[in-house]
Simulated scan of single mutants.
Amino acid sequence: MPLSLWLSLLGASVVISFTPGAGAINTMTNAINEGFRRSFWGILGQQAALLIHVIIVAAGVGLLIANSPTAFNVVRYAGAAYLVFLGVKSILAKPVSEETALDIRKNEPAFSMFRRGVWINLLNPKAIVFFLAFTPQFIRPDQPLLSQYLIYIGTIILVDVLVMWFFFAAAAKIFRRFTRSARGQCIMNISFGVLFILVAGLLLLMH
């Protein structure tokens, strides 16, 4: 991949990663509940989903989903339903005592955070359609495909990991002090729950 093309890919990846969405909300929620370091498990799950999306597009399945209203809607509604589920779960979460809140980590299993990260990004048809339109701009069919795809997905994942962990997860540290009281926990839970539901609404409005 020529340097100029890779720089364009790098710039586009940065812009995309900084665009707030369900992944960013999930990362901040994990960082608040589990701490900065452990939030990385959720980020890894989200990257696994991105890798699956690129594989789907490269295999041509993405084109079938994009061209099939039924398949597209199944993924779209499933994704929206999952985000609503996460939102309601967050809103209904009960605050812990102030003593327990001093060490607010809930010790959620790493695999649970990883799995949620996968589903959040995987059940997003917008990502499939996006990669379907985005990928051909950086892949040259007359050149070796494997190396191009490795550079392509490697750049996207590296940028997204850095942005999610060192921006969104780090930013969540600021909110941790508000979760030391029951009132603060309720406000944070409701806020992030509503954000999940709003993203689900945007997903349903997408055609």
Rank of each mutant, 00 (worst) to 15 (best):
T155H: 06
M188T: 09
K173R: 07
I157E: 05
R180G: 04
G184K: 01
S181R: 09
V163P: 03
F167C: 06
S181T: 06
G193N: 07
F167A: 03
I151A: 14
L150C: 10
G184R: 01
F178K: 00
I174P: 03
L203N: 00
L202Y: 12
R180I: 01
D160H: 12
I197H: 00
V163F: 02
I157K: 00
A169D: 05
R180S: 05
A200I: 06
K173M: 06
I157F: 02
V194Y: 04
L162A: 14
M188K: 05
R180A: 00
Q148M: 04
R180K: 12
M164T: 10
A172H: 03
Y152A: 02
R176G: 08
G193D: 06
A200F: 12
R176W: 11
D160C: 15
Q148H: 10
I151N: 15
F192I: 09
M188S: 06
V163Y: 01
F192Y: 00
F167I: 03
F166I: 13
R176Y: 10
L203P: 00
Y149M: 05
N189W: 12
F168G: 00
Y152V: 03
W165H: 15
F175H: 10
V161G: 09
Q185V: 08
V159D: 04
Y149D: 05
F178M: 07
F166L: 08
F192H: 00
R183T: 15
V159G: 03
R180W: 10
A171C: 04
Q185D: 14
T179Y: 08
L204F: 05
A170H: 05
F175S: 11
I157V: 11
I156R: 07
G201H: 15
M188L: 11
S181C: 01
A170C: 08
L162G: 13
G184D: 09
I190P: 01
R180H: 07
L198R: 06
A200Q: 01
C186Q: 13
D160I: 04
Y149W: 13
D160Y: 13
L204D: 01
F167D: 06
